[in-house]
Simulated scan of single mutants.
Amino acid sequence: MVHRDVKSTNILLDDRFTAKIADFGLSRSSQLGDESHISTAVAGTPGYLDPEYYRTGRLAEMSDIYSFGIVLLEIITNQRVLDQTREQPHIADWTAFMLNRGDITKIMDPNLHGDYNSRSVWRALELAMLCANPSSDKRPNMFQVVIELKECLTSEISMQNKNQDKDSQSSSEVSIDNMDVPSAR
C-alpha cells in the first residue's frame, strides 16, 4: 500500500508514544506485479509530495519514503516544511543549504539545547536527506530506514547511559570528598 499523504499530522501517538499512521483516504494498493509504479492522479500535501511523483504522475512505494524523510527533517529541525521566510523555503533545500555550511547546531531543534549525540544526529540527518532525495532511485527502502533509525537510537541511548554513569560517579566523588573521613595514620 502506498499512503500518498505521509505527513506529521497523519502520524498519531498513543499514551506510550507509539506511532500510528492515520488518514488512508488517498492511499492506493501497491499490488503492482512486475511494475514498480502505477499511474494515478497526483494527490498529497504540498511540501511532503514526492517531486518525481508530482512530475510524472507515477506513484511508487518510494513516494512514501520521500514523505517520511520530510517528516524526519521536521522532527530533527523543528522547522516548518514550507517557510517563505527562510533562504530556502522547502525544509529539504534549507537543510541541504545548512549542511553545506557544516554547522549542525543551526539545523537542530533549539529546544534540545545541544543535548544529543552529534554522531547519531548526523546519521539521522543523512538518512532523512537520503529519503528526501528528489530521485527515487537514490532513496533507501523502508527496511533500510528502520535499521538505520534503530542504530541512531542505540547510539543515542548509549551516549545517555555513559553520561548518566559519569554523573553518578562524579556525584559520588563529591559526596565522598565532603564527608568527614579520618585521615590515615
Rank of each mutant, 00 (worst) to 15 (best):
G57V: 08
T40M: 04
D14C: 07
A60I: 05
S171D: 13
D15R: 11
I157D: 02
D93W: 10
D103E: 12
H3N: 06
S67R: 04
T56Q: 01
N78G: 00
L153N: 11
G47P: 07
R139M: 14
L130S: 11
D167E: 12
N100V: 13
F68T: 10
L13T: 10
R55P: 09
M179G: 00
S8Y: 06
A124L: 12
D103M: 01
S155C: 13
T56M: 05
K138N: 15
R4G: 02
D64R: 00
L82R: 04
S136R: 15
Q88W: 09
P140T: 00
D115N: 12
D14E: 08
G114W: 05
S170R: 14
E156H: 06
A96Y: 12
L12Q: 08
N141A: 06
N100Q: 09
F68K: 10
V2Y: 02
T9H: 11
M62F: 09
R119F: 05
P46R: 11
T77R: 07
R86E: 06
Q160I: 13
R4P: 07
S120C: 10
T95C: 10
Q31F: 00
T18H: 13
H90P: 12
E35K: 08
M142Y: 11
R123H: 07
T40L: 03
N161P: 02
S172G: 02
I107A: 02
T95L: 04
N100G: 12
S8K: 09
D50L: 08
P140R: 09
L26Y: 03
R123C: 13
V145I: 13
P134C: 07
L73S: 03
Q164R: 14
A41F: 01
L149C: 09
D115H: 11
M1C: 02
T9V: 10
N178R: 01
P182E: 15
R4S: 02
L82P: 00
L130D: 12
N111W: 01
N161S: 13
S27G: 07
T77S: 09
Y66K: 03
V146N: 06
V146G: 04
V71G: 02
S183G: 06
I147P: 01
E74S: 14
M1W: 11
Y66T: 01
Q164C: 09
S158M: 13
K106C: 02
D115G: 02
N117C: 15
H37T: 05
D93A: 15
N78L: 03
S120V: 08
K106P: 00
V81A: 11
N78S: 07
D34M: 03
P51I: 01
E173F: 04
E148Q: 11
Y66I: 00
V174F: 10
M179V: 00
K150E: 15
W122N: 08
D165Q: 10
Q160K: 12
W122S: 09
R4T: 15
L26Q: 12
I91N: 00
F143N: 01
S27Q: 01
D5T: 13
L73Q: 03
G47K: 02
G102C: 04
D15L: 08
E52F: 05
L32F: 12
A60V: 06
E52W: 03
T77M: 04
L149N: 07
S183H: 07
V145Q: 14
E173H: 01
I91V: 15
L32Y: 08
N133Y: 10
S168K: 13
Q84D: 09
T154V: 04
